[in-house]
Simulated scan of single mutants.
Amino acid sequence: MSARPEVLVVLHDVDDNLNELAVPLAEAGLRIVTWDVERDPDGAPTVDALERFSGIISLGAYAGVTDEAKHPWMTHEKRLLERALELGMPTLGLCFGSQLLAAAAGAPFKPSPVPELGWTSVRLTDDAAADPVVGALARSSDDGEVDVYHYHFDSHELPEGAVLLAETNGIIEAYRLGDAAWGLQFHLEVGLATQLAWIAGGRRVYEREGVDPEEHERLSHENWRRYREQAHEVGAAFAQQALSYAKRG
């Protein structure tokens, strides 16, 4: 590993980048290395080369895990996630990344019982409070629930052996695999500017699903500061996991 520990960030679509999670990683002294699966397919690390990294983050995507046959990068990324799980490397999946991480661990795909668009409240489980990463969200909540930003139609079953950390009406919202891998179904990385852009671009989708886009614009304006602080705390906690892993090397 290099003198400065590196975290691999897998970018699937340019409008969903690391966003609010970039700063806490950089503040911790980590180097962020981005693989853009669509625009730089040759930039993918080999499975063997994954060992140079101290963590991996898989972001959201328009694609779904059932579209693997259409996207060669997805098969390779799944292998990277499988290898990260084998190594016990700190791993974070966000929305699609959470779904692909679950698939890499052998969990079956399923559609989300309802689409989750914009702001929803998720219930943290008792295990969340003691979790080294998601615990940061639990500490920000007074009643065991937290408001988060979503944009997804897919879901998955809980991987075997995983610990459920948050749920909403049967939808898996957060889980931990082993000691070093986390999946978050919501977009903790997405800040105010991106939220507003997604709502504007998805207005017809919101309306089709009976969701009021103007209400969620209002909620974004109300929630952005606290959400940014929550993202920073979770990002800092994940960064510490990566730094601890780097010391093992």
Score class of each variant (00 low, 15 high):
Ala22Thr: 09
Arg176Pro: 09
Leu177Thr: 03
Ala26Pro: 04
Pro213Asn: 05
Thr125Gly: 09
Thr66Pro: 10
Leu21Asp: 08
Gln185Met: 08
Arg176Lys: 04
Leu101Pro: 00
Gly106Val: 01
Arg226Leu: 13
Leu92Val: 04
Gly55Asp: 08
Leu165Lys: 14
Tyr149Thr: 07
Ala105Phe: 02
Val146His: 14
Pro111His: 15
Ile57Gly: 01
Thr91Cys: 11
Ile57Asn: 07
Val122Lys: 06
Gly178Glu: 04
Thr66His: 15
Leu137His: 12
Trp35Gly: 03
Trp119Ser: 00
Gly202Asn: 15
Arg228Trp: 07
His150Asn: 11
Ile171Lys: 14
Arg248His: 04
Val133Pro: 08
Lys247Val: 07
Ala128Phe: 09
Asp126Arg: 10
Arg139Tyr: 09
Met89Thr: 00
Val133Met: 09
Thr125Lys: 02
Thr120Pro: 14
Gly60Met: 02
Ala129Glu: 03
Tyr62Trp: 12
Arg123Met: 14
Pro113Leu: 00
Lys247Asn: 08
Gln99Asn: 11
Lys247Cys: 10
Ala239Cys: 02
Arg31Ala: 15
Leu117His: 00
Tyr62Pro: 14
Arg218Trp: 05
Val10Asn: 03
Val146Gly: 02
Gly161His: 06
Gly135Thr: 03
Tyr227Pro: 03
Arg218Asp: 04
Ala200Gln: 05
Arg39Lys: 11
Asp143Tyr: 14
Pro45Thr: 05
Glu38Thr: 09
Ala26Gly: 13
Leu101Val: 13
Gly60Ala: 11
Ala44Asn: 03
Ala103Ile: 08
Val134His: 05
Val10Leu: 11
Glu27Val: 13
Trp224Ile: 06
Glu157Lys: 10
Gly135Glu: 10
Asp127Cys: 07
Leu165Gly: 03
Pro72Phe: 13
Val47Leu: 04
Pro159Ser: 11
Ala129Ile: 14
Met1His: 09
Glu145Asp: 15
Leu59Glu: 03
Leu59Val: 09
Asp48Asn: 09
Pro115Phe: 01
Asp16Gln: 15
Gly55Gln: 06
Met74Glu: 14
Glu167Asp: 13
Gly249Phe: 04
Pro90Gly: 05
Glu116Asp: 10
Asn223Ala: 06
Glu215Ser: 05
Ala49Glu: 04
Ser141His: 05
Val9Pro: 01
Gly202Tyr: 15
Glu27Ser: 08
Phe53Met: 08
Arg4Cys: 10
Ala104Phe: 02
Trp198Gly: 11
